[in-house]
Design a protein around this nucleic acid. Structure first.
Lengths: 227, 227
DNA sequence: CGAACGAGTCAACAGGGTGTCGAGTTACGC
DNA sequence: GCGTAACTCGACACCCTGTTGACTCGTTCG
């Protein structure tokens, strides 16, 4: 747990930010109980490595953090809220990675897309357990669905803008609405990466994920309608 | 419920087929209780139209079918088993639709793929509630995951074979392993269609689903690696 | 006919999970 | 040294799942 606490410096202090109306965490601000909150998050991350979300109870999280179940509810309103907090961190990481790619120097397009896909893939691959758990939580929690929808919406808007820019400068031919293309391709990324991490059903091997996705993105964006 | 019973003629009689080892249904064969089994299935389908799977309890299904909860367990071992039975039907429908497409006369490739995508899309669109519920159940039930994995595997194998055939006859250029391409594109279909049916997150409008997917499939399979 | 049997039925139970309430117990500012 | 707010948890109220054992039938067959 202390290993988590040290890494956790970068954990967004969301619950402390200005106005937390119906926010995830509970307590208004600083006190010694921060340790407990961190311990809960660390326990969640640890337990998710060994078993699926559905097999982890609030009691497991509480005991793992050295507190009783009612006390858990002092820190988080539900099990999902813990996951949401953990997820925010990964999403922030993914966004940062994307920023690094889409920013500044636009090298050749192929390389740009390749880096973006790799950044996306790497971020989620290094948080395999969390990524798989999120997919499970999404099925049952409207809150999780909402957060994910927001995240995807940002990516889609970004891709849409890039595709339109490429079309404007004549590098990419016309075709379906750029946004629809972006949605479909982003959806593909999500499902393919999840499949390769979760291991159920037919999956692309980890090393082949980016090459295959890249090929499909490039031909979809830059390829002419084939006869 | 009688409206279901009439449509249910096509419901695969899986539980009666030759050897049902660890099968879904329970009773060995025919008796008056068939009505009850059908009533449970009908109730499930009806309730899924109005609320998500997680908000439907075994008790709801039992009462909806006019029986007590313990009696429900006489017919199905769990709530998931009901969904699995319902799902088998839809999958059989989708497979039949695919058979109709991939069979016999291979017209021009574009039209072939277009029909296949449309068949896939139509099948799931006409069972919207069930499709969305399946996605929810998949998160929690290994059994549901297994069934879906099998279904997808069949589609992937089919697509892989077609892509390889197109490459062999010189109609499609080389590229990533045909199977990887098939997995990625099939995954895209799954996620895009689900997204357009479930309504959370950015989605492609129902009428645009097939055109967009088709464009991506065609450029991925037939397009040369763009510069 | 009537005993035996198997299908079908359910009240009651055992067990596990969630979320809440209210009565404690610190710890720290004043 | 005392109030107040952070913090803690035993006990409770619920809801859900899955099982057990006894009960009611209709059928079958000696």
């Amino acid at each position: 747990m202390s290993s988590y606490a040290s890494r956790a410096g970068s954990l967004a202090r969301m619950s402390d930010d200005a106005a937390p109306p119906g926010g995830r965490g509970r307590r208004p601000a600083r006190t010694s109980g921060d340790d407990r909150e961190l311990a809960i998050l660390a326990t969640a991350e640890r337990l998710l490595e060994e078993r699926p979300l559905g097999a982890i109870s609030v009691d497991d999280l509480a005991r793992g953090a050295g507190i009783s179940r009612p006390t858990f509810y002092f820190y988080f309103p539900s099990k999902d809220a813990v996951l949401l907090t953990l997820l925010d961190r990964v999403v922030a990481e993914a966004d940062a990675a994307m920023d690094a790619v889409f920013d500044g120097s636009v090298v050749e397009p192929r390389q740009g897309w390749q880096r973006a896909l790799a950044a996306y893939h790497d971020t989620f691959r290094t948080h395999r357990a969390l990524t798989v758990a999120w997919a499970e939580a999404r099925a049952g929690s409207a809150e999780v669905r909402r957060l994910w929808a927001e995240v995807v919406e940002r990516w889609v808007q970004r891709c849409t803008a890039v595709i339109e820019a490429e079309r404007d400068r004549g590098a990419a031919p016309g075709g379906p609405a750029a946004r629809d293309l972006a949605i479909a391709l982003t959806s593909m990324n999500e499902r393919v990466i999840y499949g390769s991490l979760s291991g159920d059903g037919p999956a692309v091997a980890a090393d082949d994920v980016v090459p295959v996705l890249l090929r499909i993105w490039l031909s979809a964006v830059y390829g002419d309608e084939p006869g």
